[in-house]
Simulated scan of single mutants.
Amino acid sequence: MDEASVLWLTGLSGAGKSTIARHLRACLVGRGAAVAVLDGDEIRRGLSQGLGFSDVDRRENIRRIAEMARLLSTQGIVVIVAAIAPLSRHRGLARNIIGAPYREVYVKASLSDCERRDVKGLYARARRGEVVKFTGVTDTYEPPLNPDLLVDTSTHGVHVAVSSLMALLERCQAKQTVRQLA
């Protein structure tokens, strides 16, 4: 079976990655696609339990997610990864592991919007110094320079994001069909 796309949604905490991933999954499942969502928070509670937020631990977390995404995509499953992946070198590692199916999607939102949406209170805790190495406040986030798609959730809702992602997947499918015919 042909590899399916891996959509790697990166952005700050609260940007909307998980929400978009859930809605996109529902849309794709409704069209009969096999879909898996790999949510960074869920991965950290299970597969990457015990890893911290040092550069080495973040790299290992991303490596684990990328390996899982690659394996699933080789089975024809569309994989939606919702993970901060704050550094470009970490996303580069994911791209190298996954290969051609990898599509980087920058889920962009202003820091103030992310803080306003923060249901877990992590930004407030980071600002009080209770959470160290919190991406966007006390730790670096490097926005992608050339993502396959940019979705700005400060100006567009989840339905626009899902429509944009569906269009990206359709373009990927068309390119794959052309390669198969060549």
Rank of each mutant, 00 (worst) to 15 (best):
P144N: 13
H23Y: 15
I80Y: 03
A161M: 02
E170D: 15
A182L: 13
V151S: 08
T153K: 06
D39N: 04
K17D: 03
M166H: 15
A82H: 01
Y102D: 04
L111S: 10
F53R: 01
L72R: 03
A109H: 03
S112G: 05
S163A: 15
R89Q: 15
G157R: 15
V160I: 09
Q180E: 13
P86W: 06
V131P: 06
G30S: 05
Q173C: 08
V151F: 00
A124D: 08
L51I: 08
S88P: 13
T135K: 03
E130W: 04
D39K: 05
T138V: 09
A182N: 06
L168K: 13
S164C: 05
L7K: 07
V162K: 00
C172T: 11
V162T: 02
V151K: 00
V105E: 03
R103E: 07
R116E: 08
G136H: 00
R59Q: 06
V178N: 15
E104H: 06
S163M: 10
A21M: 03
R22L: 12
A124R: 08
K133E: 12
L169D: 09
L24V: 11
V160A: 07
G40R: 11
A161I: 01
S154C: 13
H90I: 02
A161V: 02
V6T: 03
V105C: 05
A34E: 11
E104K: 02
D57A: 09
A174E: 08
T177L: 12
L150N: 03
G121F: 10
G32H: 09
A174T: 14
Q75K: 12
Y106W: 10
R58Y: 08
R70M: 01
P86E: 05
L24G: 07
R127V: 11
T153M: 03
R171S: 14
R171V: 04
Q176I: 14
H156K: 10
A4H: 00
A82G: 13
G14M: 13
A182M: 07
R128G: 09
G30M: 10
N61R: 15
H156N: 04
D41T: 09
G30I: 08
L7G: 08
M68K: 07
G14T: 08
V56Q: 15
I98S: 04
I43H: 13
V79Q: 10
F53C: 00
S73G: 06
G30V: 13
R59G: 10
Y102C: 01
L28G: 01
D113R: 14
A83P: 10
G16P: 02
T19A: 12
F53G: 04
T140E: 11
Y123K: 01
A4G: 04
P147C: 14
L165Q: 09
L24C: 09
V79I: 11
A21E: 02
R64Y: 12
D41C: 10
T10K: 04
R117Q: 07
L122Y: 04
G14I: 07
S112C: 12
T153H: 06
P101R: 02
R179T: 13
T135Y: 05
L24F: 05
C114I: 10
N96C: 11
R70K: 13
V78R: 03
N96L: 14
D139K: 12
